[in-house]
Amino acid sequence: MPRKEILKETRRLTEPFVVTNGKGFRLKDFDPRETRGLIEKGEAAQLLERGVRWLAEEQDMLYAQDRWSVLLVFQAMDAAGKDSTIKHVMSGINPQGCYVSSFKVPSKEELEHDFLWRYVKRLPERGCIGIFNRSYYEEVLVVRVHQDILAHQMLPPELVSERIWDERLTEIANFEDYLTRQGTVVLKFFLHVSKEEQKKRFLERLDQPDKNWKFSPSDIHERQYWDDYMAAFEEAIRATASKRAPWFVVPADNKWFTRLVVAAAIVETLERLDLHYPRVDAQKKVGLATARTALLQEKKQGAPSARTRKA
């Protein structure tokens, strides 16, 4: 299939889920069960395989060109499939140019700095893809839902006002705008899983011994705050969605579809960058020709004989 036709397919997959303007955004307008008419997992697997190959090609040029960097942000409720999506979509990527950062509870050193500090340290360098498995958005999600966490962030009391969440969202939006103007492509994925599907996956973790390790009692505790989290996600997307740093609200009840949409979004974005391998100028070509001649002459001369080596 021609490349242009493939791009049309990817746009058909991603267009309904991309948010570039948060005005009027409502999470309830997005169905976690959506599959865009795809019902065959086999078909989806073939499309994903094609996307993974294409992504590998784009990443190779991204690394060689050494001009752009890419930041992929993944946010979701527990059991939405962040880890498996990253694993499958990035399966063809050269590890040399890609790394994943998972952010847990901040350390004492991290609490001594501003809330963006520890994330800035893990930003991808030029030519590389950086993946944030959870991110600075936790500061307006879990911290907003559990506001007692603010007490441990050592902020001066007079700065912890009712406007702190609006302020942080504005700072995040400005931060992402800054990154895009420095050559970092920012794509944000909210894996939108339903509460019913999350329950099903939690039960699988409890019932299947090989999945027991994935379960934590805190998972059940956090389900009590489901509506609070949905409100926080909605507000975060509404305040930070932009053309430069779009959100993708990806249906996550069917993991095979989730992976397909994420792969399509990344490929489509990299394709728009018009990546290419560094072009060789005339002077460089002369050097390459000289090197080729030297290698061919070396082959004609052959390896030294055993007698010569002993001497």
Rank of each mutant, 00 (worst) to 15 (best):
L72Q: 01
E49V: 07
A64E: 09
F30R: 08
S69T: 08
L62D: 02
R50S: 10
L48M: 00
M61D: 03
I39H: 15
T35D: 04
G37Y: 05
E40H: 13
E49K: 13
L47N: 00
R33M: 08
W68K: 10
F74W: 03
S69M: 06
G42T: 14
W54D: 05
W68G: 05
E34A: 13
A44R: 09
R53E: 14
F30Q: 09
D66P: 06
A64H: 12
Y63Q: 10
L48N: 05
Q75C: 04
R53V: 12
K41C: 05
V52S: 02
S69H: 07
R36M: 14
P32W: 01
K41W: 00
E34N: 08
G37C: 06
Y63M: 11
E43W: 11
Y63P: 00
Q59F: 09
A45P: 05
R36C: 15
Q65S: 08
A45F: 11
F30I: 12
V70N: 01
P32N: 07
L48H: 03
Q65L: 13
R53W: 12
L71A: 07
G42F: 09
D31A: 04
E43S: 13
R67L: 14
R36I: 09
D31G: 03
L55F: 06
E49G: 10
P32S: 07
Q75G: 00
A64W: 09
Q75Y: 02
K41A: 08
Q46S: 12
